[in-house]
């Protein structure tokens, strides 16, 4: 599982720009101390008693590794404030499909976060598959995001979030813009 890295070198980014991260990433609730918002690995989250897991006094999010399934989360999606999908390597694309499933098919309303090796060329794809925020460690990505250079395409050949249809265009085509 990802160790809590130095916050200074990372940034939390969403469509509106960089923002403060209220969450602490920890291996267990004990490790998190009295933090008000915590992200736990899936196994640690599953091991919590229900009343703690869905405690309304603190936010507990779940971190999912590429090899882990999202199925255990599905019955309680409306009570999970945040799901972090990991990208330990830029070329592992499983989390894109999970994002699409969570947002489109299972209607997850909480924060969907991408965590890990986020390259600038992937940011637009992440937003389009449903990620709300990106926890970015990559220096080039950080500077490009700061300059608001998303490397996005001017038009899309697929439906997806953050895009809209064009009257008269083929049904699968979209243009950017929420």
């Amino acid at each position: 599982m990802t160790e809590t890295t130095e916050q200074a070198k990372e940034g939390l980014w969403g469509r509106e720009g960089f923002r403060e991260d209220p969450y602490v990433t920890a291996e267990s609730l004990e490790d998190a101390g009295d933090a008000a918002a915590v992200i736990l690995p899936l196994a640690a989250w599953l091991a919590l008693p229900e009343d703690v897991r869905f405690d309304t006094n603190r936010k507990i999010g779940v971190s999912i590794a590429p090899g882990e399934k999202i199925d255990p989360l599905l019955p309680s999606l409306d009570r999970i404030p945040l799901i972090a999908l990991q990208f330990p390597a830029f070329n592992d694309g499983r989390s894109y499909s999970k994002a699409e499933l969570l947002k489109s098919q299972h209607n997850f309303k909480g924060e969907l976060r991408a965590v890990g090796d986020v390259l600038i060329d992937q940011v637009a794809y992440m937003l389009r598959t449903g990620f709300d925020t990106l926890k970015v460690a990559h220096a080039v990505t950080l500077s490009r995001l700061a300059a608001h250079n998303l490397h996005d395409a001017p038009v899309y050949y697929q439906p997806g979030r953050g895009s809209h249809t064009v009257p008269g265009a083929y049904s699968w085509r979209r243009i950017p813009g929420a």
């Binding site: 830029f90 694309g93 699409e100 794809y125 992440m126 389009r128 899309y156 050949y157 699968w172 085509r173």
Partner: peptide, 17 residues
């Protein structure tokens, strides 16, 4: 051609195994 368009820079399927 439809598949060509749909698969071009597909956000979900650009980092397949």
């Amino acid at each position: 051609e439809i598949l060509r368009q749909w698969s071009s820079m597909h956000p979900e399927f650009s980092y397949l195994p």
